[in-house]
Structure formats: structure tokens, C-alpha cells
Computed example of a mutant assay.
Amino acid sequence: MPVRPILTYPDPGLSRICEPVSNFGENLASLAGDLVDTMRAAPGVGITAAHIGVFERLFVLELAPGKGVLTYVNPEILWASDDLIRHMEGSVSMPGATDEVERPRQIRLRYQDLEGTSHEEEARDFHAVCIQHEIDQLDGIFWLRRLSRLKRERLVKKWQKEK
């Protein structure tokens, strides 16, 4: 599978809301394969189709090498805990820039697999953070928007200087 070019912040595509996937089949599986290879080359632990300019609700995660790739199509969060966790986040679209973001510690979500079969699962801690981060991106919410204006401005300025 080819490694695809990744949109770089502040590309307007990173603020675009993705459309639900309606066609399941060979093209979707191929796109998911491209996402895996692109994510690994970046490197990152997650990537959405939006990161490569395909505005469909699809993302992949690989939380640890050798632990397998998780693929989520048309994901939606059904429930989120009131208990919060702070975790360092970043993006393949803004390499090298990270900051701490606060999110619910545990979530329940519904999604489809590459064949279109629906699933529900619960995730907690790092797994839950990653899912929420990628769903935000599918909703056109780049992770920087989860920071205060001051933190965001400082981080962007520092990142642009180092770039």
C-alpha cells in the first residue's frame, strides 16, 4: 500500500467535517491499508482519512507495535465518563508539536468494520483518548482547538519557528 501525503497544519481540510462511509468493499479496505502505511511512516499511533485529504469517516489506530491495527468506520461516541484524564497529544499533520489535553477517561462507542458490520465497545485511558482525538478530527476539530487560546498560540508559534 502506498504512503500518502499528509495535510499539514493549517490546511483548511483539517477543519472539514467528514462524510459517513456508505460504500464498503475493496476501495475502503485499500484506503485503510494506505492509512496504516502512512501512519507508520509518519510515525504516529492514529490517522484519519481526512489527514490524507479523503473526507470520509474512517480512522486507524495502532496503540503499540505488534499489537494489531484497529479500524473504525463511521464511529460515534455513545457515552463518556465524567472522570477525566490528561494526556499529551499531537498530530501527524503537525509533527513535533505536543501538549496536554483533558478528555473523558472512558467512552463507549459504536462503529462499523471494513465490511460494514456494526460493533460497540468500551475504551479507557490511552485507547479512549486516541479514539476521541481521531473522532474530533473526523468532525473537523483539529486537536489544537482543545487547548486554551494562549497555549495554542504559543505552540503554533514555536512549531512554525522549528519547522
Rank of each mutant, 00 (worst) to 15 (best):
residue 47 I to C: 10
residue 47 I to N: 04
residue 159 W to A: 07
residue 93 S to W: 00
residue 143 W to C: 05
residue 131 I to E: 00
residue 4 R to L: 15
residue 63 L to G: 02
residue 12 P to Q: 06
residue 142 F to K: 06
residue 152 R to W: 04
residue 27 N to T: 10
residue 18 C to L: 02
residue 22 S to E: 14
residue 95 P to K: 12
residue 22 S to A: 13
residue 163 K to R: 15
residue 5 P to E: 06
residue 136 D to C: 08
residue 134 E to N: 12
residue 158 K to V: 12
residue 38 T to I: 06
residue 11 D to L: 01
residue 152 R to T: 11
residue 83 D to W: 02
residue 29 A to M: 13
residue 2 P to Q: 12
residue 74 N to K: 10
residue 125 D to M: 01
residue 145 R to D: 15
residue 143 W to H: 07
residue 81 S to M: 03
residue 137 Q to F: 05
residue 88 M to C: 05
residue 106 Q to H: 12
residue 31 L to T: 06
residue 143 W to V: 05
residue 84 L to C: 04
residue 6 I to S: 03
residue 19 E to K: 13
residue 11 D to A: 12
residue 132 Q to D: 03
residue 53 G to H: 02
residue 126 F to G: 00
residue 52 I to D: 08
residue 150 L to M: 15
residue 113 D to V: 06
residue 121 E to Y: 04
residue 156 V to R: 11
residue 119 H to Q: 03
residue 126 F to P: 01
residue 58 L to Q: 07
residue 137 Q to T: 09
residue 114 L to D: 10
residue 65 P to F: 12
residue 119 H to L: 09
residue 16 R to T: 09
residue 60 V to A: 07
residue 68 G to F: 00
residue 146 R to C: 09
residue 64 A to R: 15
residue 49 A to R: 07
residue 152 R to Q: 14
residue 141 I to H: 13
residue 89 E to I: 00
residue 154 R to H: 08
residue 67 K to A: 14
residue 33 G to S: 08
residue 119 H to Y: 12
residue 25 G to M: 04
residue 8 T to Y: 00
residue 87 H to G: 01
residue 63 L to R: 10
residue 148 S to K: 11
residue 13 G to M: 13
residue 133 H to C: 13
residue 19 E to R: 14
residue 123 A to W: 01
residue 52 I to P: 02
residue 80 A to Q: 15
residue 42 A to P: 00
residue 7 L to V: 04
residue 115 E to D: 15
residue 113 D to P: 10
residue 92 V to F: 01
residue 100 E to Y: 08
residue 8 T to M: 12
residue 19 E to T: 14
residue 58 L to W: 02
residue 110 R to G: 02
residue 160 Q to K: 12
residue 21 V to Q: 07
residue 81 S to Y: 04
residue 51 H to M: 13
residue 113 D to S: 08
residue 130 C to M: 14
residue 64 A to Q: 15
residue 52 I to E: 04
residue 161 K to T: 11
residue 141 I to F: 11
residue 156 V to F: 08
residue 2 P to N: 13
residue 136 D to S: 13
residue 13 G to I: 03
residue 19 E to N: 08
residue 36 V to C: 07
residue 124 R to Q: 10
residue 145 R to G: 11
residue 128 A to P: 01
residue 141 I to V: 15
residue 116 G to V: 09
residue 71 T to F: 05
residue 75 P to D: 02
residue 24 F to R: 13
residue 133 H to A: 11
residue 33 G to R: 06
residue 37 D to T: 06
residue 130 C to D: 03
residue 8 T to C: 07
residue 76 E to G: 05
residue 58 L to V: 12
residue 35 L to K: 01
residue 53 G to A: 05
residue 1 M to T: 11
residue 93 S to D: 03
residue 135 I to V: 15
residue 104 P to V: 12
residue 79 W to T: 03
residue 20 P to H: 02
residue 77 I to T: 07
residue 118 S to V: 14
residue 67 K to E: 14
residue 63 L to N: 02
residue 13 G to H: 04
residue 79 W to L: 06
residue 148 S to M: 13
residue 48 T to E: 01
residue 69 V to Y: 08
residue 85 I to L: 12
residue 152 R to V: 06
residue 27 N to L: 10
residue 80 A to I: 04
residue 46 G to R: 04
residue 119 H to N: 07
residue 83 D to T: 14
residue 149 R to K: 15
residue 129 V to D: 01
residue 90 G to N: 10
